[in-house]
């Protein structure tokens, strides 16, 4: 690095910068101190706390007692827990690919084929992302409402008649919520793909065109592979997004009816803050954390070590 700067007469050698840095002067640690303190206090300590707390049972009658892994066994034997897992699986398996597909198509159409209206399209498709999730949830509650909601009305015009409320039905509820989630976040997928497409090398594209790739062939055989980093980051962010799902479910169904749309967020919220069972709340917290870290590890092993959201 230092060879870039030719030391000239009268100035100190450019290399002076690095050795001083490598020694790590005490004052340099001041740069990382705030980040480290915040991490220890608000991330690391809470994680250690839930791990410990998950080994205790707490009830207003008996107080706090050590129960070992009993909370985990109780969770695994609970029907709701398996509903949560099923819902999370559906959520991730539907949301992530659909958002990638719609977001990718939009990004490709907008970036490669529009000029003057490009900024307009980018902004408009992104609007749901910047609309408060509480507002989004309540608007969709009305859209799904029986009798006066427009969803059932327009579905009826298409020949699909639904007699019950879409989010009040234990079969449909989770899918109805997934639709809302996809709608709100597809703009984000679009934007990441836009960044990927804008950074595509024109030379490679031109070379592909000379080789006869055009239209769909160009898109699927050249552009899609070149967007792999963006796809990987969307996968990673999609998994985390799925596991921390909360507001849409809490506000629209509360996890109901009869736990049919329960997710980790709502289950943890209920156990911890409504039932006051912090042992079970902590147990579920640890489980979702372990799942998140395990899935991340799997992705890193399968898809490469680099965190693609940020580095190609």
């Amino acid at each position: 690095m230092s060879t870039l700067v030719q030391p000239t007469a009268g100035t100190a050698p450019a290399t002076r910068f690095r050795p001083a840095a490598v020694r790590g002067r005490p004052s340099h640690y001041a740069f990382v101190l705030p980040a480290v303190l915040l991490f220890v206090l608000f991330i690391a300590y809470p994680i250690l706390w839930v791990m410990g707390q998950s080994l205790y049972a707490e009830s207003p009658q008996t107080g706090r007692s050590f129960v070992g892994l009993a909370n985990y066994l109780a969770a695994f034997q609970d029907r709701t827990f398996w509903l949560v897992l099923r819902n999370m699986l559906l959520w991730g398996l539907i949301t992530i690919p659909v958002q990638m597909l719609i977001g990718g198509l939009l990004a490709y159409a907008i970036e490669r084929h529009t000029k003057r209206l490009r900024g307009f399209y980018r902004t408009m498709f992104f609007l749901p992302v910047v609309t408060s999730v509480s507002v989004v949830s309540l608007v969709w509650v009305q859209i799904y409402a029986p009798y006066y909601g427009i969803a059932q009305e327009y579905l009826r015009h298409l020949g699909i008649t639904i007699s019950s409320s879409l989010i009040g039905d234990s079969t449909f509820a989770i899918y109805a919520l997934i639709v809302v989630n996809i709608w709100q976040w597809t703009g984000f997928s679009m934007l990441l793909y836009i960044a990927g497409i804008a950074n595509l090398s024109e030379e490679v594209l031109d070379a592909a065109k000379i080789d006869g790739a055009a239209g769909w062939r160009l898109a699927t055989d050249v552009v899609v592979p070149m967007l792999a980093p963006a796809t990987k980051s969307l996968l990673l962010l999609g998994v985390i997004g799925t596991l921390q799902t909360f507001p849409i479910v809490h506000l629209m169904t509360g996890g109901g009816p009869n736990h049919a749309s329960e997710v980790f967020g709502t289950a943890i919220f209920k156990q911890s803050f409504i039932l006051g069972d912090t042992g079970m709340g902590a147990t579920l917290s640890v489980i979702v954390l372990v799942i998140a870290l395990a899935l991340t590890l799997v992705q890193i092993v399968l898809l490469g070590t680099r965190f693609a959201a940020v580095r190609a």
Partner: peptide
């Protein structure tokens, strides 16, 4: 996930 941190 934030869900695992809200209680602590």
């Amino acid at each position: 996930p934030l869900a695992s941190l809200v209680l602590p």
